[in-house]
Write a protein that binds this DNA or RNA. Structure first.
Length: 809
DNA sequence: ATAGGGTTAG
């Protein structure tokens, strides 16, 4: 067949009807141009079967005019390889053939190749013309190379082509696509004659850079100067409405679409579905979707996404089913990508896996977007190993996939893995973006190293992200609070231009964990005055503040006001805060009663809270009951065992202590080793309980000896207490001697290694014990220094013998 | 023969 075509009828009937696929499953070819049906066409290359051995001779015998038509047909049908082959066989002394080849490459997204052909053309002495430059500009826009684009712009001014309206439109589009809005605006402003396309370039450009508002303003402006928008204008402005989440404007423009008779345009219809879906108006999206007579793949996919992104998970699945049954279309890779959030958000791991499996079977993989979606879905199901599995196999990881993996690690508490990945790409000079920082900053907050926190803050500031990006600013506030620097926390908060509800929640929580609940309350009222609507998290912050600072009456008042004044149902986390609050009053009956009366099933955190409450009065019976409940649930129960064990020890019930010890061994739970850290000169100095290996330990011991002597002299009781504990500990061979607790070494080291007048900041991984708490209070009085000890829950600000926690923690 | 456009992950 192929041979016949080549020898007998190389250029068959130009006017023959187009071969149209009869396969109803085949999606329409998106590359087809509008006028494809009317223009005489060269046969498709697959009908042509051009082979390298026998074609060249035949081809060169033909006139160049006919060859040009062939070249054009190849490009038009997307057969770039055939086109390039043919091109090489032709004498290419004319600009037109070069233009066509460059156009073909740009259409295929082969921007680098397009540029290299452009350079070859220039090098060969062929002058590019006004038709060449739009393609070249599009290629540089695609490569996001502003510099090269600017060079072309400069050259166009030089040769005087910058007055051509087509050229100008291309320049505008290039500038907008690379994100250089100002340059685009300048070109637009200076044009003497603007056509519809010039306006469309601006409307679409603004939407592209995420400035939906300017896009919509631009649309309005073009109408007001008498330019009638076309389908392109409308499609772009629907994108703008989506960006702004502005369904109201979307509806208005929808009306304009109908008035202008574009409502039957399939692309307009699809962009409408997309817009309504993104503006949380599923009903309107459905309405538009149902009106489409002949729904294509894109429309179905848009509807699937509309359901999935609006938590209508069941509908998104049934939509895929209908797509196959009614629409006679097979789900494609984009369907999979759209469907994944629906599975992941319902925690349907099996569904994620089956989509993954189906994608492998259908040959959708490798596909960077699908793989990234899989990473994200597996992490939402808490399956980090599976997320990692997909991630490590991604070839040509891009920024989005890296961001997804960093977020996956951070969301699941794998902070060191997240930091390792982040630092790896950072030190390899991989370009990162605001999303990268927004993802990694919570990990820095968990590292709780003030110097590292300052470093990352500096990086973010240098990139201009710390003031402009609210999510990042909020993370920075949280980071400083967690690192113990409340002053900087406040400074960053005050410096924020756009404070959202998260910013307020964070600052309220910051003061809460630092024990300054009064300020938290004050900030809450400030927030209300600033017309920021509180949410669930606000009350977690506020109630935590009341609990930590022992403001019982206020706590109850705010708890009761939640539903009454703000319409927020108290969740389990709020009950937890209230239980802490009750616990600190020592009224254990009330605590028990509170749990019984709770409308929600108590979690391990609730029982843990009751356990902590029972510790205060050493009510072992209650502690045992609470522990039993807590231990029956899947949870990290290390703290629970330790607390109970300590209570048994306090009561001298050593057999029970041993029992717990055996139980912990059985369960494979290791006691978390106490560790305290002090930073000096950008270095973290760690002190471990009962450890003598630290280099500074001798010096620290000397300092401690002096301090212990001073505190002992001051308060005799304290000395006696040490002796008592030491004796029992020696006889029982118990290693848990408070005077060997790392926090004391850390404080001592901090006192001699930091500047006078500045607070000593110690970070501790587990809760501080009562003895060490007393010790710290005394040192703060003697040394006249502020000592800040951040444990796993709160910050203790020791000053002049007192602690901000009011001796309850 | 030339410019502008819809669905997807972060």
């Amino acid at each position: 067949m192929a041979a016949t075509l080549l020898t007998h009828n190389y250029f068959p009937n130009f006017n023959a009807p187009r071969i149209v696929s009869l396969n109803p499953f085949e999606p329409p070819n998106p590359n087809q141009s509008h006028d494809a049906v009317t223009r005489p066409r060269f046969p498709k290359p697959n009908q042509l079967r051009l082979t390298h051995s026998n074609a060249s001779k035949t081809l060169t015998e033909r006139s160049n005019i006919t060859l040009m038509d062939a070249l054009y047909s190849f490009i038009d049908s997307g057969s770039i390889d055939d086109a390039l082959y043919l091109f090489e066989e032709m004498n290419h002394s004319d600009t037109f053939s070069w233009n066509i080849v460059i156009k073909g490459l740009v259409q295929k997204g082969l921007f680098d190749e397009a540029i290299s052909y452009f350079h070859r053309m220039e090098f060969g002495g062929i002058r590019p013309d006004k038709f060449t430059y739009p393609f070249v500009l599009k290629a540089f826009a695609g490569l996001l190379s502003l510099k090269e684009g600017e060079k072309v712009h400069a050259k166009l001014i030089k040769v005087g082509l910058d007055l051509d309206v087509y050229i100008c439109n291309s320049i505008i589009s290039m500038y907008m696509k690379v994100g250089c809005v100002e340059s685009g605006e300048n070109v637009f402003e200076e044009m003497s004659v603007r056509d519809l396309v010039s306006w469309n370039a601006m409307v679409s450009g603004y939407q592209l850079v995420g400035d939906g508002l300017s896009s919509l303003v631009c649309l309005r402006e073009m109408v007001s100067v008498g330019i009638r928008p076309d389908s392109f204008s409308f499609i772009s402005s629907f994108g703008a409405c989506s960006v702004e989440g502005c369904g109201r404007n979307g509806k208005e423009i929808h009306c304009q679409v109908i008035r202008n008779g574009f409502e039957m345009d399939p692309r307009v219809e699809t962009s409408l579905i997309d817009m309504y879906g993104k503006c949380r108006n599923v009903i309107y999206a459905e309405r538009v979707f149902d009106m489409i007579v002949d729904k294509n793949m894109v429309a179905w996919n848009a509807m699937v996404a509309g359901y999935a992104s609006n938590a209508r998970f069941y509908e998104s699945f049934s939509c895929v089913k209908k797509m196959q049954d009614v629409g006679k279309l097979m789900p494609d890779v984009i369907t999979m990508i759209n469907l994944l959030p629906a599975c992941a958000q319902t925690g349907a791991l099996l569904m994620v896996k089956s989509i993954h499996a189906r994608s492998i079977r259908k040959g959708f993989l490798p596909h960077i977007v699908l793989e990234t979606a899989l990473v994200d879905s597996y992490r939402r199901c808490g399956k980090l190993k599976l997320a990692e599995h997909v991630f490590t196999r991604i070839k040509g990881k891009n920024l989005a996939s890296l961001n997804a993996m960093i977020a996956a690690y951070v969301h699941n508490g794998w902070y060191s893995e997240a930091l390792e990945l982040f630092l790896d790409i950072w030190y390899n000079s991989v370009k990162v973006d605001a999303i990268t920082f927004a993802s990694i900053l919570p990990a820095y907050a968990e590292v709780t190293s003030l110097s590292e926190g300052r470093q990352i803050h500096a990086v973010v500031t240098k990139l201009g992200l710390s003031s402009s990006n609210t999510i990042i600013s909020n993370s920075i506030i949280y980071l400083y609070a967690k690192c113990g620097d409340l002053q900087t926390t406040r400074r960053c908060f005050d410096g924020m231009v756009c404070k959202d509800v998260v910013s307020w929640n964070t600052i309220i929580m910051a003061y809460a964990i630092h024990g300054f609940g009064r300020i938290s309350i004050q900030l809450f009222h400030e927030m209300i005055e600033n017309s920021i609507k509180p949410n669930k998290s606000t009350f977690v912050s506020l109630l935590s503040a009341c609990s930590i600072s022992g403001m019982v009456d206020e706590g109850w008042e705010y708890f009761n006001s939640m539903e009454r004044d703000y319409g927020i149902d108290p969740g389990i986390e709020h009950f937890g805060c209230m239980l802490d609050l009750i616990g600190r009053t020592g009224n254990l009956d009330q605590a028990k009663h509170f749990i019984e009366e709770m409308p929600l099933v108590p979690t391990a955190r609730i029982w843990g809270s009751l356990l902590s409450a029972s510790r205060k009065t050493n009510d072992i019976e209650l502690a045992e009951a609470a522990s039993k409940h807590a231990l029956s649930q899947e949870h990290d129960n290390t703290g629970c065992y330790i607390l109970l064990s300590n209570m048994y020890a306090e009561a001298g019930r050593w057999e029970d202590v041993e029992k717990i010890k055996t139980l912990m061994i059985q369960e494979g739970i290791a006691k978390t080793m106490g560790c305290s850290a002090v930073e000096k000169d950008y270095k973290v100095h760690r002190f471990v309980d009962q450890d003598g290996s630290n280099a500074e330990v001798n010096m620290v011991n000397d300092v401690m000896d002096i301090i212990v002597k001073m505190t002992a002299e001051e308060e005799d009781v304290y000395a006696r207490r040490i002796t008592k504990l030491r004796r029992t500990d020696l006889t029982r061979k118990k290693p848990n001697v408070p005077e060997n607790h790392s926090v004391r070494s850390a404080i001592s080291f901090g006192l001699i290694s930091t500047k006078l007048g500045s607070p000593v900041l110690v970070r501790k991984n587990i809760r501080i014990c009562e003895d060490c708490h007393n010790f710290a209070k005394r040192i703060s009085k003697i040394s006249k220094r502020e000592i800040v000890v951040g444990d796993s829950k709160v910050f203790h600000h020791f000053e002049d013998g007192n602690c901000s926690c009011g001796d309850y923690w």
